[in-house]
């Protein structure tokens, strides 16, 4: 029985540790996804207009761009506005260097939010590029590609790690329950002999597993809530953690504890 008690203690501590790992990697993964979302939402397409177009042709072109699927808004940026933007960005007036304004006028195309996966952005950009009168199309495709790739790798690592951690915690809980079952073998045998139902015999072990998992979950929950709130109060906006997420950790503890004890009960009781 003492062995079982030590094992319970080790089991809960390990559960805390493993749930912390699950929780922290979850936060990292959430934040990468969130960052990708935010950056995707910020992608605009800049379409440069050929210098040969007159005002009414430009207006027609703008109207055609608005009709492309997935386009939310088209804003015309005149040569003059582009020159002002240039000056803001580089601190130098183009007219100081050159006698005429070399900057082309352009359309700044913003997209519907739901269309903004990288593939959709590419598709829309190429449609815009095919419009007669558009010289060139610009968007931050490479950066987006890289970010999406990184986010995919990170979520694969997460899934792998999560599987290990889940298997590990199931093993630990079920092993602890096994030890408790062995320690109470005589009582269990007598219970069976005097006609205790299976549910009656099994329920304490199920509760024990749920207790271990949930205790681990609550402690990991507290640790993660406190540390992430601390981080967020020092560096506001650096972390994105929705409130439901914290409770998922307790839920994970509960489910792992329950499953671990069910495994042990099935095999040893």
């Amino acid at each position: 029985m003492r062995r079982a008690k030590t094992s319970t203690f080790i089991s809960i501590s390990t559960m805390i540790f493993l749930l912390l790992i699950i929780g922290l990697f979850g936060i990292i993964s959430l934040n990468i996804d969130h960052l990708v979302d935010v950056l995707n939402a910020k992608v605009d397409i800049q379409a440069f207009i050929s210098g040969t177009l007159n005002d009414s042709e430009i207006a027609n072109l703008g109207a055609r761009l608005v009709n492309i699927d997935g386009v939310a808004n088209v804003q015309f940026i005149s040569k003059e506005a582009a020159a002002k933007e240039f000056q803001k960005e580089f601190g130098q007036d183009v007219f100081d260097v050159l006698e005429e304004n070399p900057l082309p006028s352009s359309f700044l195309v913003t997209l519907n939010k739901e269309d903004q996966t990288i593939a959709d952005v590419k598709k829309i950009a190429s449609k815009i590029g095919q419009e007669p009168g558009i010289d060139e199309v610009n968007y931050h495709g490479e950066a987006l590609n890289l970010l999406n790739k990184f986010s995919n790798i990170a979520s694969n690592i997460n899934i792998l790690l999560l599987s290990f951690v889940i298997l590990g915690s199931l093993f630990i809980v079920s092993n602890t329950i096994r030890l408790i079952i062995l320690a109470r073998k005589n009582i269990i045998e007598t219970m069976k002999l005097v006609g205790a139902t299976r549910g009656f015999i099994r329920s304490p072990f199920l509760l024990e597993g749920i207790f271990q998992g949930t205790t681990g979950g609550v402690v990991a929950f507290l640790f993660i809530v406190i540390s992430s709130k601390l981080v967020m109060s020092h560096w506001p906006g650096i972390l994105y953690v929705p409130d439901y997420y914290y409770f998922l950790i307790i839920g994970a503890g509960f489910v792992l504890g329950l499953t671990g004890s069910m495994i042990a009960i099935k095999r040893y009781l």
């Binding site: 069976k192 006609g195 205790a196 139902t197 299976r198």
Partner: peptide, 8 residues
């Protein structure tokens, strides 16, 4: 599930 009741 009836075995316990038989044992009583």
């Amino acid at each position: 599930k009836d075995v316990p009741f038989m044992r009583r």
